[in-house]
Write a protein that binds this DNA or RNA. Structure first.
Length: 994
RNA sequence: GCCGGAGUGGCGAAACUGGUAGACGCGCGGGACUCAAAAUCCCGUUUGCCUUGGCAAGUAAGGGUUCGACUCCCUUCUCCGGCACCA
């Protein structure tokens, strides 16, 4: 039996065998070998982008972890769905293809092949028969289908969910919804496009609208709609970019090209309609709290009020004349602090605000125009980064004034770029005494302050002293608020806030908000309002390598969806797929698909010539729903069969989960490897860099599909886990340039590269820091089982930790020791040998303790400590002459999820013919863990002074007697009286003496 | 600036709900085996002080609660991540 551990041969053998025997093929409901009695477990990795560089050892950290979970869950009797695919559309592939003069299809296929090879070499137990790539026509057919669902739906505000747009049309026809003269549906207004508070707009019956008008009304309600918006345009890349593809200083993340704002008509997805549900449903998923918080912050819900400020008489007359009407529009603002309305001392409009030209007085016109022009030259991104909070604020007075509705005060109207057109209404009331930005601006422009919220006395004292006030007090603050160095932005009792019947004085902030909002609503000049930072999702790209939109454009500018049965709209083959680079912003952009063959671009229907949409979808589209396609990847009738979707996505049935071990279910927190209660993917593992975008977009699509009845759960990912990064030492020379880390030598604590001293730092492993370590070199040296073990042994999965090749040897030795313990060593095993005799009581207890530790650690995803337990058990075996089969087999089975190749080989050497992939996980016997004597630590006044062996059931008196009898302990008690004795059963005894 | 997360030996880390700080591994020191080396096995390894055995200090720093604090509370520092004029 003796034979040395040849990891190269063992790993090749078992990878081949798993593939041949389709060991990890997962049957679906309805398949002949599907067992419906087993509980299900869907464990998913965030699928990778197949880059040309291939994997380094940092990439598969999460994949190894999920593989361990998948293998463990198979052994504990679950049906495990564990698939893998590739997110292959997008800018990097296209840019790479352009730079190398190859078609992105070719580079993508090559990169996928290389990455699949690398993943296979890790021995990951994916069901490769479910592999998919977002670039497959069979896949993006359904991406396009989902787009058509979005296009064919609207958001019913009353029901709070999406419905087919045909239902809206019926309601309009029946008069259940009405249309205003500016073609808006008022009975179901969209968030942010609310009708004038209190004013009854004139409406028109549906039948009186022309066909064009009806179409326009419906198009505006769709979840996918065309809109003219200011977009990030990158002339050098010839495409618009999402905000996340643009760096803080207004350049493209890829290529570092300048990015400008320009208005373009683009496809938008109405994610804002789901803002409320996207926040609310976070409560039901088991995700890390910081990730939930980041999503909430990104959505940015804030409650407040819309308030209308009428223009004062001269301004109204001027604006009325300019607009050619008699009743000029009031200025509407959004505020989260309506309780501070009495503290407003001026107003600010965004420079782009449409009312600005009308109300600017002749004397100010030149200055205002100059300021607006200066603002327009700078992109919004510039404005945000260059002009952040704390920097000097600029602005210009328009010369006009508005009337504060609560007290009739005249408020000068300014324009300033610290007010953004894109949030709220693009106008604010400024309360400099209680808002940092307004305070800064008021200081810069010499505007007055008025205190209307009373700060706590301590605040007044502290800030008053800091500002050099002689006698800070409530009266001093109210009279001289401008002399205090900072605004008070907290909550407090309202003061100086009464006029006529409206009295806020004495009310705490929350009540004051209520009172003033109710007052505004009664008078029809304001209303409560919820605002979100979240914007609708810009969904068009002008590039080639993405999903084509299944949309046709008619001769009169109408859009027509491509019928479902004609999907997919395939990407046309093109030799020249480069974007059109055009610095001239007056010309419309020319998407790459504009140069597709005429036969692709033009479609004739009923004698009418349509042209195809020439934009493509952004990279996020494909990753929004891939977890659903894995459920049923070859289905050509639906994106996934209902039975498969139900089975794999459902929350666990109440009693479906068998306890893996008798004593593990006592803990309150659910183990990380029980199916997610919320339903959806049971364990989704990936990097925290997708905390917002991917996870938010996918949740949004999932909710639309849920509303339309295509999926059965409201959330896609019931449980989320973020793995940390693998860091590695990187080295810079004196110019600050990175040098290849592999060639750096260490001598006496200093680091040298080609004789030059270099500086060490730590960073995410990768090409840019020149510190990548490839798995291929590790496989060659140690084998993939060792690499898997090392990555899990480095530390907890969720923390980032530095790679250190030197340390790998530890787990490698461990595998060798396991091998020797089971097989003996060399040609003549020197004693260490498998025996069929039972283990002695001590060893048996250790085994069962180890099973308990490993099982519980796996349930908590604590792979590092699970391995430590296995190493401890194995180290004990090293010192023993024989190895009872009773111990050898559980040891091999417990090792299997971590190091599957060597475990399979040992399992076979132990005489088993079948793979251990579905062998039952070892169970421990709680009775064997019971001890009748324990060693207690004895402390004297909190300091450990000795230990005593006592029966487990010993009471305080007995333990105390035993402790005091111990000479070492007695020495520390000499001359002291024991005031108190604390016994923690099984742990310690503390004698407080003095 | 605001919001999160984290600071434990020479290094990666462990310590479950407040109960022996440093499990396990790397490295290092010593020993066995060997002609020798590798591999393997054994012993030691937080720091300081006393040459058995102890004593003292110690989980970023300072304070607090407690019989008892890496763990809870307050203040400060450092690092990492997110957001950044969102009214």
């Amino acid at each position: 039996m003796a034979r040395s551990y040849d990891f190269v041969a063992v790993e090749a053998k078992w990878q081949q065998r798993w593939a041949e025997q389709r060991t990890f093929r997962t049957p679906n409901p309805g398949d002949p070998d599907f067992d419906p009695r087993k509980p299900k477990f869907y464990v998913l990795d965030m699928f990778p982008y197949p880059s040309g560089a291939g994997l380094h050892v940092g990439h598969p950290l999460g994949y190894i972890a999920t593989d361990i979970v998948a293998r463990y869950k198979r052994m504990t009797g679950s049906n495990v769905l564990h698939p893998m695919g590739f997110d292959a559309f997008g800018l990097p592939a296209e840019q790479y293809a352009i730079e190398h003069g190859v078609h992105p299809r070719a580079t993508t296929e090559r990169n996928i092949a290389n990455m699949r090879r690398q993943l296979l070499a890790f021995g990951l137990s994916y069901d490769w028969e479910r592999e998919l790539a977002t670039t497959d026509a069979d896949y993006y057919r359904w991406t396009q289908w989902i787009f058509l669902q979005l296009y064919g739906s609207y958001f019913d505000l009353e029901a709070g969910r999406a419905r087919p747009i045909a239902e809206l049309e019926q309601r309009l026809a029946r008069g259940e919804r009405v249309v205003t003269d500016d073609l808006r549906v008022v009975a179901a207004p969209l968030p942010g496009s609310a009708a004038t508070p209190g004013s009854a707009a004139t409406t028109r019956p549906w039948a009186t609208l022309t066909a064009v008008e009806q179409r326009s009304v419906l198009d505006q309600q769709r979840l996918a709609y065309l809109a003219e918006v200011a977009v990030n345009w990158c002339p050098a890349l010839g495409t618009v970019l999402a905000n996340e593809e643009v760096t803080a200083d207004g350049r493209s993340e890829r290529g570092n090209h300048p990015v400008l704002k320009r208005p373009l008509k683009q496809w938008m997805l109405r994610i804002t309609a789901y803002a409320e549900r996207l926040i609310a449903d976070l409560d039901g998923v088991e995700w890390p709290e910081p990730i939930k918080l980041m999503q909430r912050n990104w959505i940015g819900r804030s409650e407040g009020a819309l308030v209308d400020f009428a223009l004062d008489a001269p301004a109204a007359a001027a604006a009325g004349a300019a607009a050619g009407t008699t009743a000029p529009e009031p200025i509407r603002v959004f505020t989260t602090r309506p309780d501070t309305l009495f503290g407003a001392t001026y107003m600010v409009l965004a420079p782009e605000h449409p009312l600005v030209p009308q109300l600017t007085t002749p004397g100010q016109r030149a200055a205002v125009e100059a300021y607006r022009a200066a603002t327009a030259r700078r992109s919004e991104l510039d404005r945000q980064s260059g002009q952040a909070e704390g920097k000097t604020k600029t602005g210009v007075a328009t010369g006009a004034c508005a009337i504060n509705p609560v007290n009739g005060a005249r408020l000068p109207i300014w324009i300033a770029d610290y007010v953004l057109m894109g949030y709220g209404t693009g106008a604010i009331m400024a309360v400099p005494a209680h808002d940092q930005r307004d305070f800064d601006f008021a200081r810069a422009c010499g505007l007055p302050l008025r205190a209307v919220v009373l700060p706590p006395a301590a605040w007044i004292a502290e800030q008053g002293a800091a500002a050099g006030r002689a006698a800070p007090s409530r009266e001093d603050y109210l009279a001289h608020v401008g002399d205090y160095g900072v605004p008070y932005v907290g909550e407090g009792e309202s003061v100086q806030s009464r006029h006529g019947e409206l009295v806020l004085d004495g009310l705490p902030t929350a009540e004051a908000k209520h009172a003033v909002t109710a007052w505004l609503e009664r008078r029809g000049i304001g209303s409560g309002q919820v605002q979100y930072k979240l914007r609708d999702w810009l969904f068009s790209r002008q590039r080639y390598w993405g999903e084509p939109f299944p949309v046709l454009h008619g001769p009169d500018g109408e859009t027509e969806p491509v019928p479902e049965h004609e999907l997919p709209v395939a990407l046309p083959p093109m030799d020249d797929f480069r974007p059109v680079v055009d610095e001239d912003l007056s010309r419309p952009p020319q998407p790459s698909l504009g140069r597709a063959p005429e036969s692709w671009r033009a479609v004739v229907r009923d004698g009418v010539r349509y042209t195809r949409e020439l934009n493509t979808m952004p990279q996020w589209a494909g990753s929004c729903w891939y977890y659903l396609r894995f459920l049923d990847p070859r289905n050509d009738q639906a994106l996934a069969a209902a039975a498969a979707e139900h089975y794999w996505m459902s929350p666990p049935a109440a009693a479906a989960e068998p306890a893996t071990s008798p004593a593990t279910e006592s803990t309150s927190a659910p183990a990380l490897t029980t199916p997610a209660r919320a339903g959806g993917v049971d364990l989704y593992v990936g990097g925290a860099e997708h905390a917002v975008l991917h996870l938010l977009y996918a949740r949004f699509w999932h909710k639309v599909l849920y509303d339309l009845g295509h999926v059965s759960t409201p959330e896609p990912f019931g449980r989320l886990f973020n793995q940390g990064y693998i860091l590695a030492a990187a080295f810079t020379d004196e110019r600050g340039v990175y040098v290849p880390a592999a060639e750096v030598e260490e001598r006496d604590g200093a680091f040298y590269y080609r004789g030059q001293v270099v500086r060490r730092e730590y960073g995410k492993m990768g090409k840019s820091l020149k510190n990548a370590v490839t798995p291929d070199e590790m496989f060659k040296e140690y084998g993939c089982d060792t690499l898997r073990l090392y990555e899990m042994y480095m530390g907890p999965l969720e923390v980032s930790k530095p790679w250190n090749t030197r340390d790998i040897i530890g787990v490698h030795r461990f595998l060798h020791r396991v091998w020797r313990n089971v097989c003996g060593e060399g040609e003549a095993p020197d004693g260490a040998c498998l025996v069929e005799t039972p283990a002695d009581a001590e060893l048996r207890r250790l085994l069962h303790q180890t099973i308990k530790r490993v099982t519980e650690d796996l349930d908590r995803l604590r792979f590092n400590t699970a391995l430590a337990a296995l190493i401890e058990l194995n180290n004990v075996l090293v010192g023993r002459a024989t190895l009872p089969r009773e111990v050898a087999e559980p040891l091999v089975l417990m090792l299997a999820p971590f190091a599957p190749h060597v475990a399979e080989e040992l399992w076979q050497l132990l005489g088993h013919e079948r793979s251990l992939a579905y062998a039952p996980w070892p169970r421990y016997d709680p009775a064997l863990l019971v001890v009748d004597e324990v060693e207690l630590v004895v402390q004297v006044s909190g300091k450990t002074r000795g230990r005593v062996r006592v029966p487990v059931a010993a009471d305080l008196a007995a333990v105390r007697a035993a402790a005091e009898a111990d000479p070492k302990i007695a020495k520390h008690l000499q001359g002291l009286t024991i005031h108190k004795a604390v016994l923690v059963p099984g742990r310690l005894l503390n004698l407080v003496a003095g």
